[in-house]
Design a protein around this nucleic acid. Structure first.
Lengths: 161, 161
DNA sequence: TTATTATGGACATCACATATCTATAATAAA
DNA sequence: TTTATTATAGATATGTGATGTCCATAATAA
């Protein structure tokens, strides 16, 4: 139950691209050097981000990457789902087992067979609730919000002195 | 970024043990048959739960497992942490890279070197916030709360008829 | 046309989840 | 005390995904 390193790389790369006084594309060389990751590996990640419309890529001289939309419209959830995929965080593997029948209708004398697909797993439902909570939080944090926080701190630092 | 099947098995096994009209230990055979998982594999999981004090185990004739404490004191978070471990969900792998220095003190003329360990990664901080949100939700849901929900539904079902 | 840069495929490696089998220890019943 | 039963721990196997490298190709601007 851990986020992959790729997600880490992706988030940091986007922060770099979102840096305000940057007016040109950023090549994989610069990104790679800044993050301390190999060019080979990082380009795979950037390709994914491009395929999902998070960044734009330009080949050729002076090419590189740039954000495809404003940094405040790139949420943590966006990035995570591109890299980690969009599967459910939890899947109940024994929906057909005796367990669910016991929980759903245990002791119930009447065999009520009118709603077939209704037997959803209660464990799964709790976990889906957890996922929704997590996702909501991740939607509320964006590349821009991190940049803002960084600059706010730098400012506080300067004032304190 | 997915929970393992083992977590699924553990949660369902505990639901079985927490079932109210159960007054004796439950052997691995019964658990295995109910969940549709092999005895070998499930016993590994049960051993972990025992080592962490979630269940008690009794060998020998009429032995088996039982909850080590009331079902309302066994949270989803407890179970998940036993099975998945207690590492952070996210770790920033490049705390020493140029990236953080840029974000932390970019443009800052004064080399402020008084607080050494303060340079925490802002991405990591967001992700830790996410984790805390998730954990809070998982702490609020217990084996008992799922059982309650199951019986509530069964009751509604009976009344509707 | 050329140098530069991104892209995609193939490949290698390692860690981990999943799973099985077997020998051993502990316990209750006989 | 013996025996049957049950949990436990170790060794092992296997597949899958994360991480990472290398190389050939395509696209683009100078």
């Amino acid at each position: 139950m851990q986020f992959s390193k790729s997600t880490d790389y992706a988030l940091h790369a986007l922060l770099h691209l979102g840096h305000p006084d940057r007016h040109h594309n950023v090549g994989i060389k610069e990104l790679s050097a800044t993050l301390g990751v190999s060019e080979s590996y990082l380009s795979k990640i950037m390709s994914k981000l491009r395929q999902d419309g998070i960044v734009r890529a330009v080949p050729g001289v002076n090419g590189g990457y740039e954000l495809a939309r404003p940094a405040e419209q790139i949420t943590f959830l966006d990035v995570i789902q591109v890299i980690e995929g969009r599967q459910q965080m939890f899947e109940c593997s024994n929906s057909k087992s005796q367990q669910h029948q016991l929980l759903a209708e245990e002791g119930a004398a009447q065999p009520d067979r009118k709603r077939p697909g209704q037997g959803e797993c209660l464990v799964e439902q709790v976990m889906e609730g957890a996922q929704q909570h997590l996702y909501q939080y991740l939607r509320e944090h964006t590349i821009q919000s991190v940049l803002d926080e960084a600059f706010k701190r730098r400012h506080q630092e300067a004032n304190k002195k």
